[in-house]
Design a protein around this nucleic acid. Structure first.
Length: 639
DNA sequence: CCGCCCACGC
DNA sequence: GACGTACGTGGGCGGA
């Protein structure tokens, strides 16, 4: 890379691109993609009429494993209509069952499949099968057997990168599938739906999908074994699919009136901040534009001669930069106020009501199960994993997440300090393990060690600093970052860190071992054997290697926490089903689970939730996992 | 339409 | 002297 320097050869203050952007070249196995539907032998059959359908079902019922796919009218599973089903049990042979637009007629056809779908011994193979399960669930259909999701198989084999079917097919089969644009047109307003595609075309497309999925399954199965990721695939990701399907189906109720009211309040306050900024600046501009704001602050008002620049060449106007200017000019308070208020309004308060499902009056997030490289879930439409909690005005938004009716309450259960407990357990550090076994406040215990005082003499300041160090440890933070974070000199920060490493010697050892393991094996892994491959771990580039090293430290910690809560979710889901509770698990926020709980069941499910969370995954060195639980009439109250 | 900047969570 | 805290999603801006 080229380092930007000034006239004297000094590096300029300019953030570097993220290390992963530096070495973009992908080292994908070069497979020639020369196959497609036109040059590949195949037999795809449209199956219509009761007799033919029953004959197909008879054939399918003989098979232990069935690849299948749904064709629908849209990508939102909570609103999509079924257009057809495709099946494949032998490569290059596929079946497509069209379903009529008339819902009554469709249900008649689907009824024929009831017995097949109810067969607990079947394994259903799909690509992103959660989508299909969710669509079917809206039709009252539940597949009782196990699932094999090729997307999830690829996720545990290689957690980085994208994995849509077209890419997987090209990369692993050398086969270019029919593009969906050929059927419904290019993305945009004029795009049609699968409902309008003539049978001959949709038959080829749909059956091809099921066929490719089966072939991918055959490629991935031996790789799961050779890469030794069967455990996390079989015990974590595969059983989680149905849990997430049910959670997405349930959704969560959102108080629209509350949000609409709150929106007006935020509007008024934001306006006041905005006007105040303009009058202080002596000029009107678009305050929502960082570019314009930067010019006003650093050129017109001359707030700071050496304003930091972003990599786009603009003045940086992030919160940390502005806070350092706040002593120079009171305008900063109003700018930050405006930022907070408009962020809350546009991203949450105004967005959530728009995304409420008309059928259910609830929001149905979609969990990404094969996105985050560490093994965490992601959430979108809406993202329920970044609902504000830090500020007073932000927290208010949590009041909008409410139980389904007055017979229900919200329960929230969260792991306490789970990542630090994992650090203690994996490193086997005796001081830290003991602190958790004795259920001490970990940051106070850390502070006592680092500052060499009795626990009863730990001040708020010391605890705060120790908490920052603990946090930094998880992310492989250095002295610079710590100093920046807690507002001390780099020298003092370095002293704190050095003392920390002395007091918790095994943690340093763990970090070194993690990096060494990665250097030798090319990957790091979680307790469940979830792997992350770090190709840059031996890079000669300091920045690139440092990034990989931090990931080598952080990924097993964050990933083990992800394994643990996923296992807890599976346990809880199974137990709720077994006992036929009306209460439902409705959200996951990394270390927290939220329930729409029937009031009559609260006292029964509370110990079940806590117990499942605490025992989901036994940590080494007998470090206990601890979970806290609360009940309320909204998400904020339950916390 | 897409990249950038910023900000929210854990 | 450089380096500079992990993982995500999304809104608004501004240029193509």
């Amino acid at each position: 890379m080229v380092v930007q320097t000034d006239l004297f050869g000094n590096a300029m203050e300019q953030p570097l691109p993220k290390p992963e952007e530096l070495e973009k070249q992908e080292e994908k196995p070069a497979m020639v993609v020369d196959k497609n539907i036109n040059n590949t032998a195949h037999q795809y059959v449209a199956v219509e009429g009761e007799a033919a359908i029953k004959e197909l079902i008879e054939k399918l019922s003989q098979q232990p494993e069935i690849s299948f796919d749904t064709e629908t009218t849209g990508i939102d599973a909570n609103n999509a209509e079924l257009v057809g089903l495709s099946f494949c049990i032998t490569p290059a042979e596929g079946y497509y069952v069209p379903l009529p637009a008339d819902i009554v007629e469709t249900n008649i056809v689907l009824n024929h499949f009831a017995e097949l779908f109810n067969d607990e011994s079947k394994i259903w193979i799909g690509q992103n099968i959660k989508y299909d399960l969710l669509v079917l669930k809206w039709y009252g259909i539940e597949l009782k057997g196990k699932v094999f999701d090729t997307m999830l198989a690829h996720y545990v084999i290689e957690s980085e990168g994208r994995r849509n079917m077209d890419m997987l097919s090209a990369q692993y089969l050398g086969y270019q599938p029919i593009a969906i644009e050929e059927l419904i047109g290019k993305k945009g307003k004029s795009q049609g739906t699968m409902r309008d595609v003539e049978l001959d075309k949709i038959k080829e497309y749909a059956a091809e999908d099921a066929d490719i999925t089966l072939q991918l399954k055959n490629v991935f199965t031996p790789q799961l074994k050779s890469k030794e990721v069967e455990k996390v695939f079989d015990e974590v990701e595969s059983p989680l699919v149905k849990v997430l399907t049910d959670m997405e189906y349930e959704g969560v109720k959102v108080d629209m009136d509350f949000l609409n009211h709150y929106s007006k309040e935020l509007e008024t306050e934001a306006k006041r901040c905005e006007e105040s900024v303009y009058s202080q600046a002596g000029v009107r501009f678009n305050l929502a534009s960082p570019k314009q704001l930067g010019e006003v602050l650093f050129e017109k008002l001359q707030l700071d001669a050496k304003g930091r620049k972003t990599k786009g060449g603009q003045y940086s106007t992030g919160e940390d930069v502005l806070l350092k200017l706040s002593h120079q000019n009171k305008i900063v308070d109003d700018i930050l106020g405006f930022r907070e208020l408009t962020k809350l309004k546009s991203t949450y308060v105004d967005a959530l009501p728009q995304i409420i499902n008309k059928r259910t009056g609830r929001v149905h997030t979609c969990y990404g199960q094969a996105i985050a490289v560490t093994g965490r879930l992601s959430s979108n439409n809406p993202n329920l994993q970044n609902i504000p909690v830090r500020t007073e005005r932000g927290r208010e938004i949590r009041k909008a997440f409410i139980p389904r009716d007055c017979d229900h309450s919200i329960i929230s259960a969260d792991y306490s300090q789970i990542e630090l407990r994992i650090v203690a357990a994996i490193s086997g550090d005796p001081a830290m393990c003991d602190a958790f076994k004795q259920n001490k406040d970990i940051h106070t215990a850390t502070a006592a060690k680092v500052f060499n005082v009795g626990e009863e003499d730990v001040t708020k300041e010391m605890r705060y600093k120790a908490k920052s160090v603990n946090f930094g440890i998880i992310y492989g933070q250095g002295a610079f970052g710590l100093a920046e974070n807690i507002g001390v000199s780099r020298t003092e920060a370095k002293e704190i860190i050095d003392n920390y490493k002395k007091q918790f010697a095994n943690i340093q050892k763990y970090m070194d071992e993690s990096i060494n393991f990665c250097r030798q094996n090319g990957y790091v892994q979680t307790l469940m054997g979830r792997k992350r491959w770090l190709k840059d771990i031996n890079s000669s580039n300091f920045t690139v290697r440092g990034y990989a090293e931090r990931n080598a430290i952080n990924s097993p910690i964050q990933g083990t926490a992800a394994d643990m809560i996923k296992l807890a979710m599976i346990k809880i889901h199974n137990e709720f089903k077994r006992q036929k509770f009306r209460s439902k698990m409705v959200m996951q926020v990394h270390d927290e689970l939220v329930f729409d709980a029937h009031k009559e069941e609260i006292e029964m499910i509370k110990p079940i939730i806590i117990n499942c969370m605490q025992t989901a995954l036994q940590l080494p060195n007998d470090v206990p996992a601890d979970a806290e639980i609360g009940v309320g009439e909204n998400w904020l109250e339950a916390h």
